[in-house]
């Protein structure tokens, strides 16, 4: 469950949010749409503790966001940013990277599951042996998504996950998101073909 309660925030003299409220229930899939600069990514940044609203309260799965609790909230989240620089040599290194974090240490890296997800996203299995530098932007983003999925997080935050994808890959991404019925998903996307796979779309 994700709650944004009475959020107020201005940036560069513009009131981006004024007493903004959004409630996402457990396992609900919500897409946030809207023109550039309206504050879509800002909503994710509030949740991750990268930005502080001037007023209001944010809650994730019953944990009220604060400086003390931010780690507890981040521990539950898979965040897929739009632009990622991944300083890894190869794909396998990226897939295993999240397992170095304390929060994931008790979980085991499962390569067969990774390969199943490669197939679900329309990625060639041989990519697992490739260098990161050989991948396209869309491939990198999908593999980063798979790396996060392997760590079994409860909440997915996806920032423009289809921006670098062709229509066929967008459909696969949408179908995958739709199949995650036991996950709470909040995505940012202006892609109408992708939005239709969500329970609801909110336009800012």
């Amino acid at each position: 469950m994700i709650n944004y309660n009475d959020i107020t925030f201005s940036y560069g003299g513009n009131n981006l949010f004024k007493d903004f409220n959004l409630n996402i229930t457990d396992n609900e899939h919500v897409c946030i749409a809207g023109r550039s600069g309206v504050g879509k990514s800002t909503l994710l940044n509030f949740l991750l503790g990268f930005l502080q609203p001037e007023k209001g309260m944010i809650e994730v799965n019953g944990i009220q966001q604060s400086n003390e609790n931010i780690q507890l909230i981040r521990n539950q989240i898979l965040w897929l940013p739009q632009d990622i620089n991944l300083p890894f040599q190869n794909v396998r290194e990226l897939l295993q990277f999240h397992f170095q974090f304390k929060v994931n240490r008790k979980k085991l890296y499962d390569e067969s599951k990774a390969l199943e997800l490669f197939a679900a996203f329309g990625l060639d299995r041989s990519l697992i042996n490739h260098e990161i530098a050989q991948l396209s932007g869309g491939q990198k983003q999908r593999i980063a998504f798979i790396a996060g999925i392997l760590t079994d997080k409860q909440v997915y935050l996806l920032d423009e996950p289809t921006a670098a994808l062709d229509p066929e890959s967008t459909i696969r991404m949408g179908q995958f998101v739709q199949s995650c019925t036991d996950r709470t998903i909040m995505a940012i996307s202006h892609d109408e073909h992708f939005q239709k796979y969500f329970d609801r779309t909110i336009t800012l």
Partner: peptide
């Protein structure tokens, strides 16, 4: 320079030290 990657780690559950 690599603030995206740094944030990517934090946002996916890495502790500050990690």
């Amino acid at each position: 320079r690599e603030s995206n990657f740094y944030r990517y780690q934090l946002g996916n559950g890495a502790t500050f030290q990690e």
